[in-house]
Design a protein around this nucleic acid. Structure first.
Length: 288
DNA sequence: CGGATTGTTCTTCC
DNA sequence: CGGAAGAACAATCC
């Protein structure tokens, strides 16, 4: 379940691996992953990666001397990028959860990109919700405009956020999951941020005080920045571009911890309920 | 084998 | 137009 920190971890790794590299071949193994674009492969061949940007959980690839041609990448729930320097190389030190580069492409590989230096990038996606989509500059601008602010930004506008919260009659969890409202949080980090801020996930958004609103965004930003530092969370379905699991999993306080004693108050067990249609974890004692 | 899993978009309704 | 709520998507796990 990749959220902002997982996407950012992938982006940072890819920056070092494919920027400046020229695409020499593209193989589409499942057209749905390209949004059924008929010329996906031929349009990409010959282009050189200039940069990779990110907004929320969306990756934006730009190309040298191509001002109106972009590639949008979204992992959704099970998308993964695997980078292999040489197909014949035999990697060592794999753990049980790792994907072995020798097995690529495998049955979940939807698109493969090959570069002039012999390297390959495989887009794997078991459940086919993710995509690599060709876009114009205008479409990129539209996509960017659909995102709210990211809690990891130092210039996050708390006053504006607090004001907008007052117009939300839904749960604070639903509000925080809305990418057009706040960008980057998903089911895991929302639960973790609400726990850190001592706010119950089912509280109505418009009942939060300005102090609470600031606290939950600050907590979300801090947690996500920490996660980026250690390579993201692997709860299910996340692997970095080398096929390795993320390291933030051990730092989770409530997500997946139902039935265990609250690590903060130690007076109640973490409960799992359903809020905003999602599995939701919280401490019934210290979250108000 | 039914139910749960989740990020986003779409639909429907207000 | 915006917000709310639920369905849909897809494959796998338990």
């Amino acid at each position: 379940m990749p959220e902002l920190p997982e996407v950012e971890s992938v982006r940072l790794q890819l920056l070092g691996k494919i920027v400046g590299k020229k695409i020499t071949d593209v193989v589409v193994l499942h057209p749905k992953s390209t949004n059924h674009h008929p010329n996906f492969a031929s349009l990409l061949v010959g282009k050189k990666i200039a940069h990779i940007d990110r907004v929320g959980k969306l990756m934006i690839f730009s190309f040298v001397k191509e001002p109106d041609f972009f590639l949008l990448g979204h992992l959704k729930m099970t998308g993964q990028f695997f980078f292999v320097q040489r197909k014949s190389i035999v990697g060592g030190g794999h753990s049980m959860s790792d994907t072995d580069s020798r097995d690529l492409p495998n049955k979940h590989t939807r698109i493969s990109l090959h570069f002039s230096n012999g390297a390959s990038l495989f887009f794997n996606d078991m459940r086919l919700f993710g995509y690599l989509k060709i876009a114009t500059a205008g479409e990129v601008a539209t996509a960017r405009g659909r995102f709210g602010e990211e809690p990891i930004r130092a210039d996050f506008d708390f006053d504006s956020f607090t004001e907008k919260l007052q117009r939300r009659g839904t749960s604070i969890k639903a509000a925080l999951l809305d990418q057009s409202f706040v960008a980057g949080l998903g089911n895991i980090y929302v639960d973790e941020a609400l726990f850190a801020a001592k706010i119950r996930p089912d509280r109505k958004a418009n009942t939060l005080t300005a102090k609470e609103a600031k606290a939950v965004i600050k907590a979300g930003g801090k947690i996500m920045l920490h996660s980026i530092e250690v390579g993201g969370t692997t709860f299910q379905n996340f692997a970095d571009t080398n096929g390795h699991a993320g390291n933030f999993t051990e730092h989770l306080k409530v997500f997946g911890k139902q039935g265990t004693l609250c690590p903060r108050c130690k007076k109640a067990k973490i409960q799992k309920t359903r809020v905003a249609g999602r599995g939701t974890h919280f401490c019934p004692n210290c979250q108000k």
